[in-house]
Computed example of a mutant assay.
Amino acid sequence: MEAFKNRRRTTVVICLLLAIIIPLVVLFSRRGNTHGYKSNFILPLYIYPSERAWDPLYDAIITHPRTKFTVIINPYNGPGKTPQPEEEYAAAIQRLDKFPNVKRLGYVRTTYGTRNISNIISDISTYAGWTTTGLGMHGIFFDEAPANFEDGLDDYVKRINQAVKTAPGLLPERITVHNAGRVPDRRLADPNTDVSVVFEGPYSSYQSRSAILASLPLDRTRYSYIIHGVPTSKKSGELRKFVNGLSTHAQYLFVTDLKDKYYEAFGPRLSDYVGAIPT
């Protein structure tokens, strides 16, 4: 009986210690996480899939199997005019489908909220119709999303989001990403906007905006940064430290040293930037 009481006291003491230690570990890991937070490499892929053109991407995916990729498919500033993608795109997308760490979003432009909403819904429907095996989209990337509030734009945002969330041909999770390139007016907020690209620009501009971006109120899973022109002088350790810092405030990250045509070319250091994403 005495041995049983001793074991019980020991168990109680261990439970109390765990109750104190675990919250402290979580707290301090949030304050000073030197390894970054798990993030996605979001890639606006505006490169036509001619023979071997997407090979650098396939190679990066294979080399970094633990990294999650969110790839934006953009055949013709949208899905194009045909119900199904042309043969080259179909083959390239089906190859991406073989990688379990890749999700695909269809590109749709909104022209900052001025494009006719029926045309936007038509584009969403076209992507939703790509139901052939391996062609389905996991959601929509709304480019040139509105940032300034005007009467009716809040309803506009809600309607295009709802069109994604109810499109039967899209794959779970029917992700909506809005790229305004900057922080949108809070009156345009909608619960069905899953991710907002709150910064799209050069490294030099990010440096002057970083404090404002870090103060945004939503969880980091709701934000994305797209940064180009990262100094080539950053070695692997410096690059990883920089990206780790980004990951504390945004889950969806794109970084490159390219200064122009950064969506139309991969650049020789693609694998380095993918490798810097915390997993």
Rank of each mutant, 00 (worst) to 15 (best):
D219F: 07
S247E: 04
R222I: 02
S224L: 02
K235W: 02
T256Q: 08
R220Q: 07
V255S: 10
T221E: 15
G245Y: 00
F254N: 10
S233C: 12
N244I: 01
Y252K: 05
Y252R: 06
D260T: 13
S233E: 13
R240G: 05
Y223T: 08
T248A: 12
D257R: 11
S247I: 01
H249G: 12
D257G: 11
H249K: 14
T256W: 06
V255G: 09
Y225T: 06
I226P: 07
I227L: 08
F242D: 12
V230E: 02
K234W: 07
G237N: 14
K234S: 10
L253A: 04
F254Y: 15
L253P: 03
K241C: 05
L258E: 15
K235F: 02
T256C: 12
V230C: 03
D260S: 14
G237C: 09
D219T: 15
K234F: 14
K235I: 03
K259E: 14
R240A: 13
V243G: 01
H249T: 14
K259C: 07
R240H: 11
I226K: 09
L246F: 00
T248K: 14
P231S: 11
G229W: 01
R220G: 02
G245E: 03
H249R: 15
Y223Q: 12
E238R: 11
I227P: 05
S236T: 12
K241Q: 14
K234I: 07
I227E: 04
Q251W: 00
H228I: 03
H228Q: 04
D219I: 09
K235Q: 07
F242M: 13
E238F: 07
T256I: 12
Y252N: 06
R220H: 06
Y223C: 11
R240L: 07
H249N: 15
H228M: 03
S233L: 09
N244L: 01
H228P: 01
K234E: 13
L246E: 00
P231V: 06
H228F: 05
S233G: 14
S233F: 10
K234M: 15
L246W: 00
S224H: 03
K259M: 11
Y252D: 02
V255W: 01
Y225C: 06
N244Q: 01
A250N: 09
L253Y: 01
E238S: 13
Y225I: 08
H249I: 14
R220L: 03
S236E: 13
L239M: 13
L253Q: 04
L246V: 00
L258A: 14
G245S: 02
Y252A: 05
T232R: 05
V230P: 01
K241D: 15
S236C: 04
D260A: 11
T232L: 08
I227S: 05
T256F: 08
Y252V: 05
D257M: 06
Y223G: 11
G229I: 03
A250L: 05
F254H: 12
T248W: 07
A250E: 07
K259I: 10
Q251G: 02
